[in-house]
Design a protein around this nucleic acid. Structure first.
Lengths: 243, 243
DNA sequence: CAAATAGTGTCTGTCAGACAGTATTGA
DNA sequence: TCAATACTGTCTGACAGACACTATTTG
């Protein structure tokens, strides 16, 4: 805190949303086509400025989500992801953006005739690889969000949030495979997930597949923090050194 | 984004700093006594407003750190901790605060005759227990920072940052015990830390204690991300008795 | 010698990876 | 019957917790 004569700098506060879902066994992200400058016509994360002084950050995030993507807010849990506030990241001035992450089992196609008409799902791979260009520093935000999701999958029951209300163990395995980007042994996965107490509970019925033995259905259990965690095999070979 | 006539709300952007260190085998945090209203005279985290529009958040954090605590910035690594921006958290208006976390091996007493004269170290326990009252929502920020430090201790070589340039394995164990708030078996800790490749390397000399066999000295190894991680014992990991 | 701290060896239970084998369906 | 998917049993190696034991110092 400095002296009384000093006046604070003008800062614009925005929220950006990383909305992930699983479609066609691939991790996908919700993007919008920008309708105004800067970066008009480019793809970007849903988001926007805080609307008024009394609006909380999370409320702004929820508002943008329903405005731009026509998504039922109640079904999603938004989690703080990070702050992106470097000077120069936005040509309109000093914009500090707070990013939120949400993960959902299933989300509808963008609805024509609404603000969300220009929203679309894209495979996360295409963003991370650079095949799709994003406005501002949004690619970096996406990368942070995906890494967060991968870590959360290990230590929380998040994976069930990607599934519907009931699911088979194979469904759940496909979530891990899609988010982690690797293949898992179905037999070992089956045992592991069954013995992680409170992770999933039997739903009592079965689902027939096109061919083969019907699979038992499960639903999400009460446990939100997994012990022991689901370990991501890629860590075994990771020799990265970073701070 | 809304129409062109709309003007963005005024938001004040601040940084707050959670500076942790180990003193007398206890986890301690740097606090300052506020010199101005609101909460004049109360204890608070070091921090303050962004000074001008072109100042980056991390630069503001570094500036506050040197102004308020007279700490050499180069020795510390600041890490983004979170954003605290609820309306009403500051009576002066809408203040959004970005919190940073730093962890240091050893830090000097606050220097008299500087801006840092009213800075002081306090045991984290006393803050978390509510014995010490903090201004604003700073107790919550401290809790988040301590939990972050505990998790980082598991997966990174952070613990060596709490020690001096060389240390014994018992020194390192005391770091884990202080931050995690639990006791560890010294024999198992010894083996575990030795076989985590790249975590610590022998420094070649020994340190005599008041009594007992001298201990070998080590220094931080090249590895920053630990595999396998140091696992924090959980109440859930208690050994099951025979059925 | 005792007391104290440093460091080693080893048993045991748990668990992940590998993979052979069994169960149940539709065609 | 076969093909496909769902599930079970079991071996093995790695590792954490427990703890007896040895090593080296001061007093």
């Amino acid at each position: 805190m400095t002296d009384e004569q000093w006046t604070p700098p003008v800062v614009l506060l925005a929220v950006d949303l990383v909305i992930l879902t699983l479609r066609e066994s691939r991790l996908q992200i919700l993007l919008v086509e920008r309708g105004i400058e800067p970066y008009k016509g480019a793809l970007a994360l849903p988001g926007g400025f805080l609307q008024h002084s009394e609006e909380s950050l999370i409320a702004a995030a929820h508002r943008e989500l329903s405005e731009e993507a026509d998504i039922d807010v109640a079904t999603l849990t938004l989690e703080h992801l990070g702050v992106y506030g470097d000077p120069g990241r936005d040509p309109r001035g000093r914009v500090v953006s707070v990013a939120y992450l949400a993960i959902a089992p299933w989300l509808p196609e963008p609805t024509a005739g609404t603000d969300a008409a220009n929203a679309e799902w894209q495979a996360v791979d295409r963003v991370l690889s650079g095949e799709l260009e994003l406005a501002f520093d949004h690619r970096r935000i996406v990368a942070d969000g995906v890494e967060r999701a991968r870590v959360k999958l290990e230590h929380s029951a998040l994976a069930t949030a990607f599934c519907g209300p009931t699911f088979t163990i194979t469904d759940l395995q496909e979530v891990y495979e899609a988010v982690w980007g690797i293949r898992l042994d179905p037999r070992n996965f089956y045992r592991k997930v069954q013995k992680t107490d409170g992770f999933i509970v039997a739903a009592g019925s079965e689902r027939k597949s096109a061919t083969g033995r019907p699979a038992r259905l499960f639903k999400a259990g009460p446990r939100k923090v997994l012990y022991p965690p689901m370990v991501r095999p890629t860590e075994l070979s990771t020799q990265k050194e970073q701070q």
